[in-house]
Each structure stands twice: as structure tokens, then as C-alpha cells.
């Protein structure tokens, strides 16, 4: 199984998707010029992969410090996809990591988590850089 690794830039997040071990990480800042062009290929690949999983242990870590509205929409879609994977019999853990001094990111994570019905949600506070 392959992996997708994209280094973070000023406007785009770091992507570390390990399809073999079902561990996925999205971190950094996200306000791409073209949100569809950036997220399209990786989300399509992820959706196809998750649909094919059954009884798998899946971990998705979000460690974002800033994102724009389009990214927020992508994230909401991702949460739906992960929840659907959990509903179809996979053990899915979504971890939302935020800096202890960042109330905004914490609240956004809590709001996104409201849509999760089947996946496990973990809110993890870390020390600011």
C-alpha cells in the first residue's frame, strides 16, 4: 500500500496519509488558492480507500492551526466520510489536536465532532509552540 506525503507550505497543510497502516495526518495551515485542486486528488483517493475497508482500525489526526472557509467545508466532508467508514464496521478514531491557547481551533473541533455518530472523537490539547 502506498503513502501520500505532501510537505506543508505557507498556504497548504502538511499531508501524511499512510494507507498501509490506516494512519492519516493533516497538519498546519490551510488556505489554498484552489482548494479543489489541492484537496481533490487526496480526498478522492482517501474516499476510495475507506470505502474498501472492513473491520479496519483507522486513525485520523487533525493538527491544524488555521484554515479558511473552503477548507472547513472539506473538513466537514472528511468527517462525514470517516463517520461513514465507522458505520460500515471499521474502528475509526478522529483526533483533533489543538494548542492550549487556541480557543478558536478547539471550538471548531468540538463543532465538527457534533456530526460524528459512529467514529470515536478525541480532543487533544498540546502546549503551544
Amino acid at each position: 500500500m502506498d503513502t501520500v506525503k505532501i510537505q506543508g507550505s505557507e498556504r497548504t497543510p502538511e499531508v501524511d496519509f499512510d494507507f498501509g497502516s490506516n494512519v492519516f495526518v493533516l497538519s498546519g495551515e490551510s488556505y489554498p488558492e484552489d482548494v479543489t485542486a489541492f484537496f481533490g486528488p487526496i480526498i478522492e483517493k482517501l474516499e476510495a480507500h475507506l470505502e474498501a475497508q472492513s473491520g479496519a482500525e483507522i486513525r485520523f489526526d487533525f493538527e491544524l492551526v488555521y484554515f479558511n472557509s473552503s477548507t472547513a467545508k472539506v473538513l466537514m466532508g472528511l468527517f462525514d466520510t470517516l463517520d461513514a467508514a465507522a458505520e460500515s464496521g471499521n474502528d475509526v478514531t478522529v483526533t483533533w489536536i489543538y494548542a492550549s491557547d487556541d480557543d478558536n481551533i478547539q471550538e471548531l473541533g468540538e463543532e465538527f465532532a457534533e456530526d460524528l455518530e459512529h467514529a470515536r472523537f478525541v480532543l487533544k490539547e498540546v502546549d503551544p509552540d
Partner: peptide, 9 residues
Amino acid sequence: MGFEIFKKE
């Protein structure tokens, strides 16, 4: 259909 952020809607 390719990826669109409002694909489901």
C-alpha cells in the same frame, strides 16, 4: 464526477 467541495449537495 471529480472532487468538488459541494459534491454531496
